[in-house]
Design a protein around this nucleic acid. Sequence first.
DNA 1: GCCTAAACGGACCGCCCGGTCAACTTGTTA
DNA 2: TAACAAGTTGACCGGGCGGTCCGTTTAGGC
Lengths: 198, 198
Amino acid sequence: MIVTIDRPLRADAARNRSSLLAAAAEEFAAHGLDASVADIARRAGIGKGTVFRHFPTKDDLLAAVVLDRIDNLAALAQRLTTATDPGAALLEFMDAAAGRQQQLDLSFLRESGEINARLRNARERLFTAIITLVTRAQEAGAIRADINGMDVILLMCAPNHVVSFVPDPPPDLWRRYLHIIFDGLRPDGAQPLPDPAP
Amino acid sequence: MIVTIDRPLRADAARNRSSLLAAAAEEFAAHGLDASVADIARRAGIGKGTVFRHFPTKDDLLAAVVLDRIDNLAALAQRLTTATDPGAALLEFMDAAAGRQQQLDLSFLRESGEINARLRNARERLFTAIITLVTRAQEAGAIRADINGMDVILLMCAPNHVVSFVPDPPPDLWRRYLHIIFDGLRPDGAQPLPDPAP
DNA sequence: GCCTAAACGGACCGCCCGGTCAACTTGTTA
DNA sequence: TAACAAGTTGACCGGGCGGTCCGTTTAGGC
């Protein structure tokens, strides 16, 4: 068992840590998981060794970036569970979720393993909040009944991915596809879905 | 200028070439662009050097695999342009397109550069066939008017990508998401899309 | 201002990858 | 069946990656 005493970070270390996280977020957004640690370090203006002092592994660094985003999303989702218009609330949530590069996050959704407890915890918060969001929207008749929290999680990431293939995407193009997908969730169509939700 | 005389391949070379292509398709499907040439060669039961004799570059090998798929898709799309029910035809096409791993293909859709002429040609055929498919479906009132051929191309790849994040996906789960997305293309919703098509 | 532990940084390591090459094997043709 | 071109192969190369290490710098309590 490893015992770590959380003494406060030295001022310069704290500064470096935050610019490192910012740089990592940008670099991962730009190059996906292939972003190199050396590039991240360069962008943050620190040495490569310093990166590994803060995060023992590239994966740990990625996890920290993702935790940040999942945390924010979970907070937003929880806030929206009390909105007056449940349909609009769900749309707003998916809009916020799709607006950022989420590919990385998704790959962490399935890791059931030994990721750090905070991440697993944040994921749990996010999941349950989304489920309430979905349930309320269904009760309000805003979306079809045979939809899942998982469906929403999966679909909200599609727009960004899809847009990533067009050469010079207008910055809001993803909204177009989110809109289409959200329309697909509406109860109008009424034909049952061919497969059960995961 | 390089002049190549197309003499017929030796029997063993032809055999190797086709098992190489099959192995490459499987390996790319399993590991994406990160599939290593060595693994592909091993799966095909040939030496790594042989791979590079048939295709001077890993990218050329990928292009050959993709060409195959694009060709098939284009043929299907052309066949469907004369179907009696244009709405069903478009759905059938998207179904066939989504049913296979298309991520690779998409990345080639945007390469305007110096990819080989056959590939560019097949892509062109695919594009125009899809556009007719979409136009006919619109004239039949099966899908909304503010949709593009490009929209269809982009969206038809989303289901597979989305499903790739669920741990042990049932083999037909992608159909669920294709269905949702296709419902989003239906004219019922009627609210105009927030952004113009690419 | 001094001292020490904390933090830093970049040279360095081993690994894996795409791609090359020259020695070897094999299909083909007369 | 002989002889040659076509094809095969795996050792090898250079480069880039994640990760390590140790000499150097620096923040902050006294």
